[in-house]
């Protein structure tokens, strides 16, 4: 059986990759992909601690992961709807070009 620190280091690397993708890419959809990777790293940690914890009979870790997956799916749906609305307004999804709260300063 793999020791617990290996799982934690794996999820840390996954979290760092997601954070880097979130901070480095220009496209808003890529920022959402980075957020998804970070959420999955957190889920991996939940499962690892559930498996190695003392109260492994209770389903608390699984429940936490299930609720996190559901909320992450809702977050993705709203985020992608925002991206599509931004594209319709500005004809771009690059996050460094969408830096104004009002839409009137640029022609559509």
């Amino acid at each position: 059986m793999t020791p617990l620190p290996y799982w934690l280091i794996l999820s840390s690397i996954l979290f760092a990759i997601g954070l880097a993708g979130c901070l480095v890419r220009r496209n808003a959809i890529m920022v959402l992909i980075g957020i998804e990777l970070m959420l999955n790293a957190a889920n991996l940690n939940f499962i690892a601690f559930w498996r190695y914890g003392s109260g492994a009979e209770a389903a608390h870790g699984i429940m936490f992961v299930l609720f996190a997956i559901a909320i992450a799916a809702a977050e993705t749906a709203v985020g992608l709807a925002l991206v599509i609305a931004l594209y319709r307004l500005r004809r771009t999804v690059q996050v460094d070009e969408a830096d104004a709260l009002k839409a009137d300063d640029k022609p559509r």
Binding site: F15, L23, R26, V95
Partner: peptide, 19 residues
């Protein structure tokens, strides 16, 4: 067309520090 933002070095540094 640039895929990465202008401040990509700061982003990578932040991620590496977190890791």
């Amino acid at each position: 067309v640039a895929v990465f933002s202008r401040s990509w070095k700061t982003g990578l540094l932040t991620a590496a520090a977190t890791l």
